[in-house]
Design a protein around this nucleic acid. Structure first.
Length: 490
RNA sequence: GCUCCUGUGGUGUAGUACGGUCCAUCAUUCCGGGUUUUCAUCCCGGCGACCCGGGUUCAAAUCCCGGCAGGAGCACCA
């Protein structure tokens, strides 16, 4: 074997391909783009786009264009605050700001000019058929009567569209592709439509707005985008746009696709659905910890690197997948563990009076058990401590880092400072340091609240702590004398 | 209905272009154990998969044919 085909032995078939596979086509100057609709902030699904594009940008020293596809004023109208939010969220995820930021609504004249070129070039036409009628033409592969209008007629109708003379729904501009195409989705697809409702940024300046397939196609070409990474639900967009590019004499970028992603823990969600649930008061805002938004995840304490690692691991496959937050949490806890100081949170506390001749006045506990954070938390012990009700036993227990005790009723006697046997070790808190606290735990559609006491040692608002024997939680501050903790994961 | 995409353990993923070294990789979950004065981190071990049926071949996860299943597009949304 070795003599017959020595090269066969060199193949490392089991070797795991690290990272993302290479980009196809010419990669000498890679320009990528991420194009969300600013009708709300980014969600965990969007983070895949930011992560994958950023990963490729690093690999190829590529530029990323952040483009706001905000040309719909009716169905999914833009949200004014979302533009700035998304720029921040992009930077949070990517580690740096986008190289170019574009708002489609600000570049309307360009799209309208291209629409005119299309009309003049004869590869587009103004169609005044109703949506229903055209649907019928599409299924029967029939050319609609508007299709052979002269350029002059088309230009006349075009100016009536733009002047506002034709009402919404009265006309659209279509790209001539052929009504006999086997794929019905491609047949003379609509490129621009009339919208009389004002746009939140540019007002009522324009009556005619491009649809995604047209606007996106023009802008990708203008920005010199080399590779488009998009959901595979947009495969037909690629095909539609490729025909448009042929009309214009342009080369289409290299398309790559990913499949649908579901997160076990969050059922179906949409930006518009979340928006209405927030408006109705079901959620407190876009950063409500039950929501799969990046704002909520950042608030809870997810490190953006955990998301990047997750998406890199998932890669760029066209499979429809369903992933669990558990996987993300696993990445996250590994990343944050070294940076999180420990604190004690005792839920449903039960107090014990300590009986001993010589109780040490203070003890020191490590800020981090492995010393990744140096220093100690110094506790004044006192004579009353609290342990978790669920840890309570009549008998022997060890108070972690302190002493072996034996409990009888509500009093405890110190048996030994050193560990003397293998009795259960529990976390505890001196009454002097016990700050009343509520731990909010997001649980599906609900948030459950756990009452307890939190170790009041150098608490920093907004800081993430690991609550010993409980898990990670963010300290959100003190309200009405009660500390508020937000659960992350264990 | 038409057009298209995808099927590898519970969940992801590698391997599939060029069939053998694949009784199938790695991660995560789960289970068991170790370290640890946290139920964290870390370490070790274990369970567990090539959608189905034919075909070609000495040999098929990989090639061919046919099914089946899941998803998407056919919006004057993105």
């Amino acid at each position: 074997m070795e003599s017959l085909a020595p090269e066969a032995l060199d193949r490392e078939r089991h070797k795991k391909n690290e990272g993302l596979r290479d980009l196809p086509g010419n990669t000498s100057e890679v320009i990528l783009r991420f194009a969300p609709n600013p009708n709300g902030p980014l969600s965990i699904g969007h983070s895949r786009g930011v992560a994958i594009n950023s990963l490729y940008a690093d690999k190829y020293q590529a530029k990323i264009v952040l483009r706001f596809d905000d040309t719909d004023t009716k169905v999914k109208p833009p949200m004014v605050d979302a533009y700035a939010w998304i720029e921040e969220e992009f930077e949070w995820m990517s580690g740096k700001a986008a190289d170019v930021v574009i708002r489609a609504s600000e570049r309307m004249p360009i799209y309208l000019q291209h629409a005119e070129k299309m009309l003049i070039g004869g590869f587009g036409y103004v169609c005044k058929c109703t949506a229903e009628d055209f649907r019928e033409f599409r299924v029967t592969k029939t050319e609609c009567p508007c299709r052979d209008k002269s350029v002059q007629q088309n230009m006349d109708d075009w100016s009536k569209m733009n002047s506002g003379e034709i009402d919404e729904g009265g006309a659209v501009v279509r790209v001539k592709t052929g009504m006999d195409l086997p794929n019905p989705a491609l047949r003379d697809w609509p490129a621009l439509r009339i919208q009389h409702s004002p746009h939140p940024i540019v007002g009522d300046k324009y009556k005619v707005w491009p649809l995604l397939d047209f606007q996106s196609a023009i802008e990708d070409h203008l920005q010199g985008v080399s590779h488009i990474i998009r959901g595979k639900d947009l495969m037909d967009s690629t095909r539609k746009q490729t025909i448009l590019y042929e009309h214009f004499g342009w080369d289409y970028p290299e398309p790559l696709y990913w499949g649908r992603v579901k997160i076990h823990e969050f059922g179906g969600f949409s930006t518009s659905g979340m928006s209405s649930s927030i408006d109705s008061g079901k959620f407190s805002g876009w950063d409500d910890p039950r929501l799969p938004t990046l704002r909520a995840m950042r608030r809870r304490g997810f490190d953006p690197r955990s998301l990047a690692e997750l998406w890199e691991e998932v890669g760029l496959t066209q499979k429809d997948i369903s992933i669990s937050m558990k996987t993300l949490e696993s990445f996250n806890s590994r990343i944050i563990d070294g940076d999180c100081e420990r604190r004690v949170f005792v839920s449903n506390p039960k107090s014990l009076d300590i009986n001993a001749e010589n109780i040490p006045s203070t003890i020191s506990m490590a800020r981090h058990p492995d010393g990744e954070i140096e220093g100690f938390r110094v506790w004044e012990v006192g004579t009353t401590v609290s342990i978790q009700n669920s840890d309570f036993v009549e008998g022997k227990l060890r108070l972690k880092d302190f002493a072996d005790i034996i409990i009888s009723g509500s009093s405890a006697t110190i048996e030994s400072a050193d560990r003397s046997d293998d009795r259960k070790i529990v976390h505890w808190i001196p009454e002097k340091l016990a700050l009343e606290a509520i731990l909010s735990v997001p649980d599906g559609e609900d948030i459950s609240e756990v009452n307890g006491v939190l170790e009041d040692f150098e608490l920093i608002e907004g800081e993430l702590y690991q609550l010993e024997r409980v898990g990670f939680a963010r300290f959100e501050g003190i309200q009405d004398g009660i500390a508020r903790l937000l659960w992350l994961h264990n």
